[in-house]
């Protein structure tokens, strides 16, 4: 037998094929695994900088109360005291930056209120919840003031 490995030639070639496969895998790893992967954890370190580069969308309550000075006092009295402004009004960083350029949109109470107050047996019994089909009034805002939810219900003039 003239072959280098005698009767083992085919096995050596198959082993070579497997070795080549492993080599291709290692090359693919070197090529495709993003730089910085695993520096801080099982993710790409550069993802942190990417996230930081996103424009800030929320202004934060402190920015809101700088101008809307009357709302914090009203909120204090009600059950919504701990809810942040932008939880209901949406992200308003642009408005806080320049109120003349970007206006906040007043939320529609019919849509907004039921997001939390729609009846569901999974909610704690003490939590106020309604079935919109049975609950009176076409619009929550007519009887309830979302900034002071404890004072109602009473028809506004």
């Amino acid at each position: 037998m003239s072959r280098l490995f005698g009767h083992k030639e085919h096995l050596v070639r198959m082993a070579g094929l497997f070795a080549a496969g492993i080599l291709v895998f290692l090359l693919a790893r070197a090529l495709f695994v993003p730089k910085g992967f695993g520096t801080y954890g099982h993710y790409r370190a550069g993802a942190l900088a990417d996230n930081r580069a996103y424009p800030v969308k929320f202004a934060g309550r402190d920015a809101c109360v700088e101008c809307h000075t009357d709302v914090p006092d009203a909120l204090k009295a009600g059950k919504h005291a701990r809810i942040r402004c932008e939880a209901c009004h949406g992200p308003l960083a642009a408005h806080a930056q320049d109120p003349t350029k970007a206006k906040g949109v007043k939320p529609d109470p019919k849509v907004l209120c039921v997001k939390c107050h729609l009846a569901n047996v999974a909610k704690p019994q003490g939590f106020p919840q309604i079935d919109p089909k049975e609950h009176l009034g076409p619009n929550c805002g007519e009887c309830h003031d979302p900034h002071v939810p404890g004072q109602e219900p009473q028809k506004k003039g």
């Binding site: 037998m1 072959r3 009767h7 083992k8 030639e9 085919h10 096995l11 070639r13 198959m14 094929l17």
Partner: peptide, 19 residues
């Protein structure tokens, strides 16, 4: 598929069987 090796001698086949 044969990887260019056409050795089907008894010895080679015995080796195949063992592996």
């Amino acid at each position: 598929l044969s990887l260019g090796v056409d050795d089907i001698s008894e010895e080679a086949l015995r080796l195949d069987d063992k592996v």
